[in-house]
């Protein structure tokens, strides 16, 4: 299919010459997400946080499977049509992905980028399609508040207080199917982030740990492509929340890059911060995945948005590294989405 190969603009930025398209996407959400401002954007919402499963891990696996199946249904494809599946999540050894997707029998590549996984898997799937290695490729990720809490923090029923900088792990999943197609949204460019660590050690302030990574990736992308924030309708970060978003603006401001007019953050969109008591905003792989797959891609399909930069951010720590006093490295991968193909 592919006539041209992807074109490497720099060490980090790759132009996808054939503009692979996201032919279908689906978002799955839990109870709290169904009470949020983006409720109508989810394909599947479940009032029961367990989705009828026995453990939180099973629930999260089930959400990924549901998201992939729904996206396949919307694309009028079956699992046999998908050449490669890229997936990952937050749980140890990425068990939500491996257990959730084991029955699908699709060649599988597990990825871990913490909460940046949606951008990472989407970038890889798009690269495979752009270079003709896959006709159809899929990207999926998820997070669940309850499975994340028990792994990274404390038991759910523990009577503790969350600091104002803490974020709420979204119970959500998002899946996207990529193929060469005449209709968008199209993936035009990707920018792979570098691991960035500014010495933040507070696991209750992920936004601050990830903001420098997002700033660095954005700056690199603008430099490599010769564009500026004004060329885009929306610069959408993954889950920086309130603290991380304000730090990102400040960091970019120091480089004379202003994103004040067109920046938003999935973590600030998925919940009503005050009413839903989520402190600094939403987080988790599923946060950016569901906002992208459920809301933003539709906005691009309807041409309400034309040029969008999606930068999912991840905090690459584990409970062990935090307990050992290590700082939290951040990462941010960028995917440039558009309603029009490369000319």
């Amino acid at each position: 299919m592919a006539i041209h190969m992807s074109h490497k603009l720099s060490r980090s930025t790759i132009r996808l010459t054939n503009s692979p398209a996201i032919v279908a996407s689906a978002a799955v959400g839990g109870k709290k997400e169904g009470e949020g401002p983006l409720a109508s954007c989810f394909d599947i919402l479940c009032d029961d946080t367990t989705f009828g499963e026995k453990t939180w891990e099973k629930t999260e696996s089930r959400m990924q499977k549901d998201a992939v199946n729904k996206a396949l249904e919307k694309a009028h494809l079956s699992t046999a049509d998908i050449d490669f599946l890229f997936a990952g999540d937050l749980l140890n050894q990425c068990i939500s992905s491996t257990y959730g997707l084991r029955d699908l029998e699709i060649p599988f590549l597990g990825v871990f980028g913490a909460c940046s996984t949606m951008a990472e898997s989407l970038a890889l799937a798009s690269l495979f399609v752009d270079n003709g290695i896959a006709v159809h490729a899929a990207a999926v990720t998820s997070s669940h508040f309850c499975s994340a809490e028990r792994q990274f923090r404390l038991p759910l029923a523990y009577g503790g207080q969350r600091p104002p900088t803490s974020q709420w792990t979204a119970t959500a999943s998002g899946a996207a199917i990529i193929a060469n197609d005449a209709n968008g949204p199209f993936v035009k460019e990707i920018c792979i982030g570098k691991i960035t660590d500014m010495g933040i050690t507070d696991a209750n302030n992920m936004g601050a740990a990830m903001a420098p990574a997002a700033a660095q990736t954005l700056q690199t992308f603008f430099q490599d492509t010769g564009t500026s924030p004004a060329d885009y309708d929306l610069i959408l970060t993954g889950d920086l929340g309130q603290v991380g978003s304000s730090l990102l603006k400040e960091l970019l401001n120091r480089e004379n890059i202003s994103i004040l007019d067109n920046h938003n953050d999935c973590g600030l969109m998925i919940y009503d911060l005050e009413r839903q008591d989520v402190h600094a905003g939403g987080s988790g792989c599923g946060c950016s995945a569901s906002v992208l797959c459920g809301h933003i891609l539709n906005e691009i399909r309807q041409k309400h948005l034309n040029e969008v930069l999606f930068i999912a951010t991840g905090a690459l720590m584990s409970p062990t590294s935090v307990q050992q006093g290590e700082s939290i490295p951040g990462i941010a991968h960028l995917v440039h989405l558009s309603s029009v193909k490369w000319a």
Binding site: T165, M198, G199, I200, Q242, V243, S246, E250, L251, E255
Partner: peptide, 25 residues
């Protein structure tokens, strides 16, 4: 200019809201 870790810590403290101790205590 890219801030040093120390400068970034300062920026972070400015951006991070504290607990409202006059309510919580």
């Amino acid at each position: 200019m890219k801030p040093t870790a120390k400068e970034y810590d300062k920026l972070n403290q400015q951006a991070s809201k504290n607990t409202k101790s006059y309510i919580t205590i």
